[in-house]
């Protein structure tokens, strides 16, 4: 198992995850510009943590990148051919009114996995995320932490090249937060590009490879994690890290 992980690590350093590029992307709704215009490229190994105060446009940025929203200006593009396989984990996981394992087999069915392979893959993912005992329990009666782990397991079976996470731990207790962070690292080791929003500085310090800092719908900086936390360039980021209120 260790050698397998080591191989994966090697693989992820050899071929960096799919690159994402925003070129002059802006999003407005009812005449009000909520984000941008902003341009940046995610080419490094990541994980990329999108940080900023509430209403900064973090969720909109994620949704634009994932294609849940279409930019009103500019372009979102990916390296390689076509749109890479991607998945998203939401703040409040959206789970189907079926058993935990059926939630995973449904996602696999949507992705055209052959019927025979689905259940095995689903059970493997449930085991990885510590949900084997809950396989036949309805997803809707799982605890908050279990639901979020199931959402991660669903993303896992899809083997995405890119994983978006929108405040995935904001409603969870410390043990559940730890499980989510472990999962995020596993995705990262598998070579998945991680783009995650959080307003938790400590979480960002634990996970980030690079940080995109947003405030008021604008990107104020995009720097490697170490320099972001030790010597932020922008005044807004300095205030944010110092725990001041940022407009």
């Amino acid at each position: 198992m260790t050698s397998f992980n080591a191989l994966l690590n090697a693989a992820s350093t050899l071929c960096p995850p799919t690159a994402l590029r925003f070129k002059g992307v802006a999003f407005s709704h009812l005449g009000e510009t909520l984000l941008g215009p902003c341009s940046f490229t995610l080419t490094g190994p990541g994980p990329t943590l999108v940080m900023g105060p509430n209403g900064a446009g973090k969720s909109i940025l994620l949704r634009l990148a994932h294609g849940l929203l279409s930019p009103t200006q500019g372009q979102v593009s990916w390296s390689g051919e076509g749109r890479p396989r991607q998945a998203m984990v939401f703040q409040n996981p959206v789970l189907l009114r079926r058993s935990a394992v059926a939630n995973l087999t449904h996602a696999l069915a949507v992705n055209n996995t052959p019927r025979k392979a689905r259940r095995k893959l689903a059970l493997e993912a449930l085991e990885r995320f510590g949900l084997t005992a809950r396989a036949d329990t309805s997803a809707r009666v799982l605890s908050g932490g279990e639901q979020q782990r199931l959402a991660l397991a669903r993303a896992w079976v899809l083997a995405p090249a890119v994983l978006f996470l929108d405040e995935p731990t904001s409603a969870l207790d410390p043990a559940a937060i730890k499980a989510v962070e472990t999962a995020v690292r596993e995705f990262h080791q598998r070579g998945t590009r991680i783009v995650m929003t959080t307003h938790d500085l400590y979480q960002a310090k634990r996970l980030a490879g690079d940080v995109l800092f947003l405030a008021g719908g604008k990107i104020h900086e995009h720097t490697p994690a170490e320099s972001f936390f030790s010597s932020p360039v922008s005044k807004e980021a300095r205030a944010f890290i110092a725990g001041e209120l940022v407009e």
Binding site: H66, G67, L68, F90, V94, L96, R97
Partner: peptide
């Protein structure tokens, strides 16, 4: 309304959403 974002995220077409919605609304 509850499932929409997750469905789009999974890359489901409208015709693929139909049986899922009907079953979940059973």
């Amino acid at each position: 309304g509850e499932y929409r974002e997750q469905f789009i995220s999974l890359g489901m077409s409208r015709s693929r959403m139909m049986p899922t919605l009907l079953w979940d609304a059973r």
